[in-house]
Amino acid sequence: MNDQMTAAAFNLADFEATDTAWLEVQSKKDDGPLLFNGLPVRIEVRSPGTKEAMNAQHIIDTATTTRTYAAMRGKVSKETVEGNIAQRASKLIAVTTQIENFPVSPKDLYANPKLGYIIDQVAKFHGDWANF
Rank of each mutant, 00 (worst) to 15 (best):
D19C: 00
E24K: 10
E16N: 10
F132N: 05
N37I: 06
D30S: 11
I85S: 05
G127S: 08
G127V: 01
T68Q: 07
H58D: 13
A56P: 07
L39C: 06
V25G: 09
E24L: 14
A70E: 13
T6D: 10
Q98G: 02
R46I: 03
A130Q: 14
T6F: 10
D120N: 09
P106A: 10
L23K: 10
L34N: 05
T64Q: 04
R73V: 00
A7T: 11
T80L: 09
T18N: 06
M1D: 03
I60H: 04
L34E: 12
V95L: 06
D19L: 05
W129D: 14
T50P: 06
D128N: 15
A111P: 00
E44H: 02
A71T: 08
S90W: 01
G49Y: 11
K75V: 14
K91P: 03
W129G: 04
A7Q: 15
L23V: 08
K28P: 03
E52L: 06
G83N: 12
F15P: 03
L39P: 00
T68H: 03
K91F: 04
V76W: 01
Y117Q: 03
N131T: 11
A123H: 02
L92K: 01
G83Y: 09
K124I: 05
R46Q: 12
F102C: 07
I59C: 04
T64W: 00
Y110W: 06
F102H: 04
K28T: 02
R42F: 09
T62V: 06
V25S: 08
D61W: 04
A56S: 12
K28M: 12
L92I: 05
E16S: 06
T20K: 01
T96F: 04
V95S: 07
K78W: 07
V45W: 00
G38C: 13
I99W: 00
A63N: 11
A9H: 05
K124Y: 01
D120F: 00
F15D: 07
S105M: 08
P40N: 04
L109D: 03
L23R: 06
A89T: 01
M72Q: 08
D30E: 14
I118S: 03
A21F: 13
V95F: 05
A94E: 07
S105N: 05
E52C: 00
P103E: 12
L34K: 12
K124A: 12
A70M: 12
G83V: 12
K91W: 01
V81H: 10
W22A: 09
F132G: 12
W129M: 12
A86C: 02
S77L: 12
E44N: 14
E52Q: 13
A130Y: 07
K107G: 02
Q98K: 15
W22P: 00
G127D: 07
E100I: 15
V81P: 01
T80H: 06
K75P: 00
D3N: 13
D31W: 01
P48H: 02
E16V: 04
S90L: 10
V41W: 01
R46K: 14
A86G: 00
A8D: 15
R67A: 08
R42H: 12
N101L: 07
F15S: 10
T18K: 10
F15L: 15
V76K: 15
T50I: 07
V76G: 06
R73G: 02
M54T: 08
T6V: 14
T64G: 01
D128R: 11
N11R: 15
K124T: 13
N112T: 14
